[in-house]
Design a binder for these strands. Structure first.
Lengths: 310, 310
DNA sequence: ACCAATGTTTCCTTTTTGTGAAACTTTAGA
DNA sequence: TCTAAAGTTTCACAAAAAGGAAACATTGGT
């Protein structure tokens, strides 16, 4: 240590010495406090006399003739007890900060993902409310790119988005996957045909009208891969399902949506082997500044809500 | 260190770290606080992260992108400020104990010493009242041996007594001296005789009546040394002076008393060369338990009141 | 793309602190 | 008077804490 900096030149009474003093005073002697403190008496003796030097007062008469606090010692003892209480209080204030999360958490959700039965957001929210009842939850629905932008800028604490094109500024935590497939509706030329039949006929999918989302999304990328031309743009899943059910359009649907629509009766998977793909949904937070505690806690809730154990 | 005792296992938040944290927060960054703290940034950085580990909370985002307290950091800062205030308050409570003497001080005075002009007890009292206005002074007059017994037993805090037969349990601090001499009164056979004349006549002092104190005192010891027989016992100086002035008795008087009686007119020193002696008056306190602060302070006042400088 | 500023980490040194053992000192009590 | 008990002091040592220097890492601005 080069030189003690300006801090606590005079002050910074050693809390430890004060604690020792209190115990010694309560035990009414050094010998008696040995057990309590679990320190040798030579050490205790030095502690007490150190303390006396530091605060410049003789605190007690001690020796073979007995132990007695001086009048100053009694006063110091009183003030010390109070100080130690205040320190304990400080400790518990800190503890309570640790325990009680407060504030508002802003969570973004991909607006077309709420129907997936794999998504356990509701469960995560319930868990979170259990451990952090004082945090207000703010939920916002938007497109994946808008959500990621929000998280990056700090406008959102966390978002649940399909995990594609990961940004290096963000940290992704996989939650669940959604399986997608190209569907057509009743009345469509491909309706009812098995993959083998379609393949036998050497069908060119791009010959059919295709409906998809108008914004950047896994759906859009899948469409690109099929090289289909988008004849209809939609903004939400229901609209897309409607177009497909019309029997005029091909389009990607999540399998759970197809099931919801009545499956084989209403919509039909096209070339499942080739067109099926799955999207992983992930919770995303920014890397820095590091997410705060309530965000981390929410992330944990999300993870545990989606872990296989549950 | 063999093993940290049970004290403050979890707690004992390091006050120093908290102080550093407050300064850093106030300076809004580590670099800025370097000057203020007069510590290198590497150390400060470590301090802050140590503190974060100890209390288990991230306190601030820091880095090239700027410095920002987290919401927890802000809360901790508030509580820390309060704690530091309370520590300061503790300090000043201690200081005030140091400064303000309280209680009662019991002082004993040799009851035959109050007329000596060298005794500056009044001045000492004035000084003491200046520095310790809240201490009540209790003064008791008694014989030297009674006073010393009082000090030894703790019934008295301090006494001013002629310093003879020092007791090993007591600590003596010389204050002033009183010169004594054997005197006779007008009408006595030795009145008016110079030392030489008395010696020429080969006078046997023990042939004359002698008057002295009836209790153990320097006066009594002086009488023993002269081998005079005590024909009259007195209990105070005025009675003694009266007997001597009668011209019938020899007796020891303090020179200042003789002067007060009118010196050469009224009383006459006998064989000054041989009979003169001086008594040192001293303040006396017990060695242990060590005298308390007000006693020590009073002792200081006595000393300074009697020091040559004054 | 480069630079300056802000922190962090690693490595090493110095100082302070905490500790026990043992030899002493003092005092109360048998 | 002798002894046991209570503290104090001295000595030696280990560990923690405080500190700095230098090499890194990250980021904002030119």
């Amino acid at each position: 240590m080069a030189k003690r900096a300006v801090l606590g030149t005079l002050g910074d009474v050693d809390i430890r010495l004060l604690r020792v003093f209190v115990v010694v005073a309560e035990c009414n002697g050094i010998a008696a406090s040995e057990l309590e403190l679990n320190i040798g008496k030579s050490t205790i003796s030095r502690h007490i006399s150190d303390l006396e030097k530091r605060i410049g007062l003789r605190l007690c008469d001690r020796g073979p003739s007995g132990f007695n606090l001086t009048s100053e010692g009694r006063q110091v003892l009183d003030h010390t007890r109070q100080l130690l209480l205040q320190i304990d209080e400080f400790q518990s204030q800190i503890d309570s900060i640790q325990r009680n999360l407060k504030g508002t958490i802003r969570v973004g959700i991909f607006d077309q993902s709420s129907t997936n039965p794999n998504g356990r957001l509701h469960q995560a929210i319930a868990e979170f409310d259990e451990i952090a009842p004082d945090v207000a939850i703010n939920i916002l629905l938007d497109s994946p790119s808008a959500l990621e932008a929000g998280v990056t800028s700090g406008a959102l604490d966390l978002a649940v988005v399909p995990n594609y094109q990961p940004s290096s500024a963000l940290r992704y935590r996989p939650l669940y996957t959604e399986s997608m497939c190209l569907y057509c509706g009743q009345g469509h030329p491909l309706f009812g045909l098995s993959d083998a039949e379609v393949q036998d006929r050497d069908v060119d999918l791009s010959a059919y009208k295709y409906a998809g989302y108008g914004f950047n999304s896994p759906n859009m990328r899948a469409g690109h891969k099929l090289r289909v031309k988008r004849a209809a743009q939609v903004k939400d899943e229901e609209a897309l399902a409607l177009l497909i059910q019309s029997g005029r359009y091909l389009g990607y649907l999540a399998d759970h949506v197809a099931v919801g629509l009545g499956a084989a009766q209403s919509v039909w998977p096209v070339l499942r082997d080739q067109t099926a793909y799955s999207v992983q949904f992930a919770a995303v937070v920014r890397k820095r500044p590091e997410p705060d505690r309530k965000t981390t806690a929410f992330l944990e809730c999300l993870t545990s809500a989606h872990s296989p154990a549950d």
